[in-house]
């Protein structure tokens, strides 16, 4: 069997946020076609680690390579292969769900239909598509955000606390789509407090502790 391609390789990385080391000599890696679960208490560095992989966070020491690209240089080339869902929804409250999805599809140059298909998978259809995002519940907004991220069909998807605000049905959708992504050779990294929920589908697990990622 051919060795699996390494998607993310982080070695001895330190990230300072306001003088505080959010990541301290952290090592972390992700291979293709796997679901990696990251657990850890609040402030342990989960979000910073995901942002580092997404190329929206700089670092002070160490080495970060995503898809073989050194993230010390231009990070723009990597971003088209990476999807990220953080605590914030990255959506516009004054646009409807449909308009948000169309905007995202236009930005990414993907067919609108694909974005709507994923929205439908996450239970967003009918009148809800014409509701302003600002009037949706937190759980519904999270579904839109996840549908938008999955519709990119990118090689690496980074999900930061994706279960927050989601109901049981939403969590089921999330697991199903994550598994399907892995089957297609894509990688999904999930930082979550709901360790038990994702543990059954995760290939590898990390525990964040004081800015370090410990393999479990």
């Amino acid at each position: 069997m051919a060795p699996r391609r390494q998607v993310v390789k982080i070695e001895q990385v330190t990230v300072l946020l306001g003088g505080f080391p959010a990541l301290a000599r952290c090592d972390f890696d992700v291979f293709e076609a796997e679901i990696v679960l990251i657990a850890g208490s609040n402030g342990s560095g989960k979000t910073t680690l995901l942002k580092l992989c997404a190329g929206i966070c700089g670092f002070r020491e160490g080495s970060v390579r995503v898809f073989g690209v050194d993230m010390k240089g231009s990070r723009a080339d990597v971003r088209k292969f990476v999807g990220y869902v953080g605590h914030a929804t990255l959506l516009y409250n004054d646009l409807t769900v449909r308009e948000n999805l169309k905007f995202i599809a236009s930005c990414l140059d993907i067919p609108f239909e694909r974005a709507f298909e994923y929205a439908s998978e996450f239970g967003l259809s009918g009148k809800m598509l014409d509701q302003l995002v600002g009037t949706l519940s937190a759980g519904q907004r999270k579904r839109v955000s996840l549908a938008a991220a999955f519709s990119r069909e990118c090689e690496l998807l980074l999900l930061d606390e994706p279960h927050a605000s989601l109901d049981h049905e939403g969590k089921e959708f999330l697991e199903q789509v994550s598994i399907r992504f892995r089957e297609l050779g894509r990688s999904v990294v999930v930082a979550s407090h709901e360790f038990e929920r994702m543990e059954s589908i995760a290939d590898r697990r990390y525990q964040m502790d004081s800015g370090r990622a410990l393999k479990l």
């Binding site: 997404a54 190329g55 929206i56 971003r79 990476v82 999807g83 990220y84 953080g86 914030a88 929804t89 990255l90 959506l91 516009y92 409250n93 995202i104 930005c107 990414l108």
Partner: peptide, 10 residues
């Protein structure tokens, strides 16, 4: 909603 991050990510 940190939409600026999205513009960078897209």
């Amino acid at each position: 909603n940190n939409a600026k991050d999205a513009l960078i990510l897209y």
